[in-house]
Design a protein around this nucleic acid. Structure first.
Length: 490
RNA sequence: CGGGGUGUAGCGUAGUCCGGUUAUCGCGCCAGUUUUGGGAACUGGAGGUCGCAGGUUCGAUUCCUGCCACCCCGACCA
């Protein structure tokens, strides 16, 4: 067990916070609610970015960049959008500082007050749609399929590293289409991209679905989402894809001439995932020994740790390590040879275990003389001794096994934590245990609101694959034709 | 913003009630030596405006007043 490390059972949120810091992923900064993402954590984010960015490009999108600052008046143009974001906006009011009269520091120069305040973007729909107006005149200009990688600011009251920070990194796709159908298709397509990424790269099973009106994005007609289940039984919204209808086109007057020579408003979507995925990744797989990373996102997939006595043995081990590194790299496997002599092997074992490195090779002189090495896997903490001959093929296979095992384990957990609940009494009991509760709901915001008030549970989504089924709302008893998923959420 | 709590070295802490020489200990850090199969040992060393500002006092980390910051519980969180 990792030294002085709190277990999940003892205190789940402390476990999470400590893990983030001790695994060297991130730390709190001097700025309230903002974190510093450290190199090891950022390397994971970069791998996420790369995989997602490739998929965005494959589906026809291009990257662009829009300003950090948004004129306040833009926000006023879409009523629901303002409503949703106004309470958490950082506002720029001045563009210059001056020395205070009493010499105690600096203050905003009143002479440099902005005519119109600028909002630090909490999301970019408004500035982007203001820009799109100039780009779109004809149906021939459509579709526009843009994505941007950016930082955004939402002045949250309470923050937690990666899960909810005042500033976070994300990507936001903003597309413009000729028809409603095309926009809806795009919304769903990107949801599929997110789900694929979550499952294949993060080894995290997700529910695909759409939000109830209460949980929709401010300004959207429909919000599709992927929902994941964390080990403490709470749900985490891992990505959203919004069908925005013509709301933003109307607010920003974005019209085009159709083939029929009619002036029409453009149809819109937006979709995003953020550094919150880092939190999801951590909470899906990690254990009481520290971080567990799926091979497809691990910055270091294999670490090699040497053990030797004396110069002669050291030379032998070094030579073998070099050969192994070259072979693994040739297969596209990222490998680190940690030959620092300032730490002992046992220390290194713990270090890499805590940091979630999927596979460790212990290259010991004693075993090596017999042509053997020890392989340890992080996911199930098992070890075996194998011939060094033909090792790289086995490692390659092992990484695939680990990736699959992590997914299967997470899937089994989710399935065991998902159950159908058909009465209010049962709901009150089951919601305390955590997990996804599949229930009938009468479809009204009032019922959802009541349930939230009483139990803190919300509708995470209406699953896309929900079956048609006669039933009664668990709260009101009114008729319902499909089950929705309730959970307490992050 | 309401309720509760905490500020002493990079981290974790003792001391403060009842003011008094050089502020305690552990981890970590630096140097050297010996070590290396699950978080090495020894020796030496560096590191402190005791959250900030006033006040009381011969003397304040300790007492008083004000302020600030952070944490927890609520409120808030497409």
């Amino acid at each position: 067990m990792a030294k002085d490390f709190v277990t999940r059972a003892e205190n789940y949120s402390e476990w999470y916070n400590e893990l983030v810091v001790r695994a060297d992923l991130a730390e709190n900064s001097a700025v309230r609610g903002c974190m510093v993402i450290k190199p090891y954590g950022y390397a994971i984010w970069e791998k996420m970015q790369k995989a997602l960015d490739d998929m965005f490009k494959e589906t026809g999108h291009q990257n662009a960049y829009f300003p950090l600052f948004i004129p306040k008046s833009y926000f006023e143009k879409e009523a629901e959008h303002v409503e949703g974001f106004a309470k958490e906006c950082a506002v720029v009011t001045h563009h210059r500082l001056r020395a205070k009269a009493d010499g105690t520091g600096l203050e905003p120069d009143p002479g440099a007050k902005l005519e119109e305040e600028l909002i630090v973007r909490p999301t970019s729909e408004t500035i982007i749609w203001d820009t799109y107006r100039g780009w779109i005149k004809s149906y021939r200009d459509l579709p526009i399929l843009c994505n941007q990688w950016a930082n955004v600011v939402r002045w949250e009251m309470r923050t937690r590293m990666f899960l909810r920070t005042a500033e976070f990194l994300w990507q936001e796709g903003h597309t413009a289409h000729e028809t409603l159908d095309e926009a809806v298709e795009e919304t769903k397509k990107m949801l599929e991209v997110y789900a694929y990424f979550a499952e294949k790269f993060m080894a995290m099973p997700v529910l695909k679905g759409y939000k109830s009106p209460n949980e929709r994005f401010a300004g959207a007609l429909d919000t599709y989402c992927i929902e994941a289940l964390m080990q403490d039984g709470k749900a985490l919204q891992a990505g959203t894809s919004h069908f925005l209808g013509q709301n933003f086109a109307k607010a920003f007057d974005v019209k085009f001439l159709s083939k029929e020579n009619k002036l029409e408003y453009v149809w819109a979507t937006s979709w995003g995932v953020s550094t919150r995925l880092m939190g999801a990744l951590i909470m899906t797989h990690s254990d009481d020994e520290g971080l567990v990373l799926p091979p497809n996102l691990a910055p270091i997939q294999v670490v090699i740790i040497p053990i030797s006595k004396g110069e002669e043995q050291k030379a032998m081990v070094d030579k073998e390590a070099e050969r192994l590194c070259a072979e693994l790299k040739a297969k596209g496997i990222s490998v680190k040879y940690d030959n620092r002599d300032s730490y002992k092997p046992g220390w290194k074992f713990n270090e890499y275990e805590f940091k979630g490195v999927p596979v460790r090779i212990t290259l010991g002189a004693r075993d090596l003389e017999q042509g053997l090495v020890e392989i340890a896997r992080r996911d199930n903490l098992t070890k075996e001794t194998l011939p060094v001959e033909g090792l790289t093929d086995k490692i390659e296979k092992l990484l695939e096994d680990i990736q699959a095992n992590l997914y299967n384990k997470a899937l089994a957990f989710r399935e065991n934590s998902t159950r159908e609940v058909d009465s209010w009494e049962e709901f009150l009991v089951e919601i305390e245990k955590g997990g996804f509760l599949s229930c009938h709901w009468d479809g009204t915001p009032e019922t959802e609101e009541k349930i939230k008030e009483i139990t803190k549970a919300t509708i995470r989504c209406v699953p896309l694959d929900a079956k048609e089924e006669e039933g009664k709302c668990i709260f009101s008893g009114k008729p319902s034709n499909k089950r929705v998923v309730f959970a307490r959420a992050y």
